[in-house]
């Protein structure tokens, strides 16, 4: 059976909020190392990969590998019933029909319990190859969110150009064009505001802003976001969580068609 206790329901709430617009139903794969989720959006343009390590829970118990097929809309509905500070416990049998969520209020003795019916989702867990990226940009997640939102007003796609000088987010739309350039920046007092650019070769790729804005919903999970780019592979947007847990988004680029 599975029993996972999260000190703060907030974490799961935010994770599910961030991915529920990309995927409707997905499998939460539970094993003794933690809870993992991998899902592609309908159009196969973006991929979400989440890993909540067992260390993020206290305690965590999972005797067998279980795949919990959950409809994320239903899960959001139930998670709305939890306060941010509640203690959340996830429970499931070995061959479950339902997943059980218990919210305990830290202050009062309120205890609420919900069951969500599971669904049988035919979805393989596919291996995402480890990749060496040509450019790795670490920046404040709020900054990334702001750039995406600002440029979204002008165009539907953004080109991310990474050179020695810095990283340039540029877009071109019907009403005009815009760009935001960030340079490497160290803030001693507030390390959260650091911008780091680790570059082995210059990269320039174009992405759909619609998806990036969607990814930015995870900004609340982590103060910093990591963008990894290479000319040959999808963009990786990673929000690191505590205890090596993470929420990663992959996005396929847009490429010029000449015909």
């Amino acid at each position: 059976m599975l029993e996972a206790r999260l000190e703060q329901a907030n974490l799961l709430k935010k994770v599910v909020d961030a991915i529920k617009d990309l995927v409707q139903d997905c499998n939460f794969d539970c094993n003794d190392s933690g809870i993992a989720l991998q899902a592609m959006d309908n159009s196969h343009v973006a991929l979400v990969s989440m890993m909540l390590k067992s260390e993020s829970f206290s305690p965590f118990r999972c005797d067998r590998n279980i795949a919990l097929g959950i409809n994320l809309t239903s899960l959001t509905k139930v998670l709305r019933c939890a306060q941010n500070e509640d203690i959340l416990t996830l429970k499931a049998e070995d061959a479950p029909d339902v997943v059980n969520l218990v919210f305990e209020s830290a202050e009062s003795d309120r205890l609420s319990e919900y069951d969500i019916k599971l669904m049988d989702i035919d979805q393989e867990h596919l291996g995402i190859p480890e990749t060496e990226y040509a450019a790795v940009i670490t920046m404040p997640s709020t900054e990334f969110q702001r750039i995406c939102r600002d440029l979204m007003a002008l165009s539907e796609s953004v080109s991310i150009e990474c050179t020695k000088e810095g990283v340039k987010f540029a877009c071109q739309g019907d009403i005009g064009s815009g760009s935001v350039t960030l340079r490497s920046h160290q803030n001693v007092e507030k390390p959260d505001l650091n911008v780091e650019i680790d570059l082995t070769e210059p990269v320039s790729l174009t992405f759909s802003l619609k998806y990036l804005v969607n990814f930015c919903k995870a900004s609340g999970l982590s103060s910093q976001v990591k963008l990894c780019l290479s000319n040959e592979v999808p963009l990786l947007v990673e929000y690191a969580l505590s205890n090596n847990s993470y929420l990663r988004f992959y996005l396929a680029p847009k490429i010029g068609d000449e015909e």
Partner: peptide, 20 residues
């Protein structure tokens, strides 16, 4: 020339079955 280059969205393929 920039407009002529119509952008086409790529897709991610991890080798799973695409048919359903």
């Amino acid at each position: 020339p920039l407009k002529k280059k119509r952008l086409v969205q790529m897709q991610i393929d991890l080798g799973g079955d695409t048919r359903k």
